[in-house]
Write a protein that binds this DNA or RNA. Structure first.
Lengths: 169, 169
DNA sequence: GTAAATATGTGCGTAGCGCACATATCTGGT
DNA sequence: ACCAGATATGTGCGCTACGCACATATTTAC
């Protein structure tokens, strides 16, 4: 394989993430995995502290403190979970609003880089990225991790597989 | 413009940077902008603290402390600059070695994601990314920032322009 | 009914960074 | 030659984001 393409994708990815993270920090006033946490909790699948920890790739205590910050910012509430041990994380009204701003800011940041391409070029690029993602060997948890900033309002059919390995049943 | 492509590129960029940053942390034992600093200093254009600050997008003091860390790790040396105010940053032998490991780790991380594409698909993708980057309106400093992790051993002709705006002469 | 597993919270330390301030050198105008 | 402003670096101090080790509560399995 030729390495030029890897370097180009690395540079583009850095530029994309710089812009996304800058926008996210402006919207929620926090960095690190905090913006992603807000988005993930907003997916609303009865998120718990421990699931969040795995998706974000943080330590347990780091996740607890992250949720502490979101709670002190009045963006998230801790409610009793089904299981008596679990905590069910829910967005407040203000949390939902911040999350929507966050998603809009992210799409806008990436779009500003993409708009120099023609409509046909963007279609080509979309097809290639979709293929690239679809052929990765990702577990369900990997998928949540990669998609932890994704906009569920525009990403209807995610190309990522959820069945890593797929050896037998 | 359709937003699906922006979301896809955002997700891919996140996956790419996750892998690059994880590898970088394993190689140099440090996170944040420290790996990028090591690469930038290695370009060897008589790097100073202040130029580095602008490229990395950090505060002045943050940059001084970052260099302190690199010096205490024996990867960088502070030498007197041409101008009596400036400090000339130079990699030590061990710094050069770490930088090479860092670059190799980055290329390897991105390549592992790309190798599911056919050779023809990779060529298409390279062409599209090259076009996307070439048409951005970037200043020379923007270029250094975007390329702060780039592998100068494989990136021969960078597509990024260096003449932002280009109003008048 | 007790041991192991699961889920959360806490004390404590560290890395990475910014703000405000201090210091040293260079530049330009008189 | 001199002095004000610009330029470049270093420092005191605090904060955010995070991990490790430990403590606690609940559930599951034998």
């Amino acid at each position: 394989m030729e390495n030029g393409i890897a370097n180009l994708l690395g540079a583009l990815s850095l530029a994309v993430m710089d812009r996304i993270e800058q926008g996210a920090r402006e919207v929620v006033g926090r960095g690190g995995e905090t913006p992603a946490a807000l988005i993930v909790i907003g997916y609303g699948q009865g998120m718990t502290n421990d699931k969040l920890r795995r998706i974000l790739g943080l330590s347990h205590s780091g996740t607890v403190r992250l949720v502490d910050r979101l709670v002190s910012d009045r963006l998230v509430e801790r409610r009793p979970g089904k299981d008596g041990r679990e905590v069910a994380l829910h967005l407040t009204a203000s949390g939902v609003a911040s999350r929507n701003e966050l998603l809009a800011s992210r799409i806008s940041a990436v779009t500003s880089l993409l708009e120099v391409l023609s409509s046909a070029e963007r279609k080509q690029l979309a097809t290639l990225i979709r293929a690239l993602l679809a052929r990765q060997d990702t577990s369900e948890m990997d998928r949540f991790t990669i998609c932890r900033m994704c906009d569920d309002r525009v990403c209807t059919n995610c190309p990522l597989p959820t069945n890593k390995g797929q050896h037998g049943h």
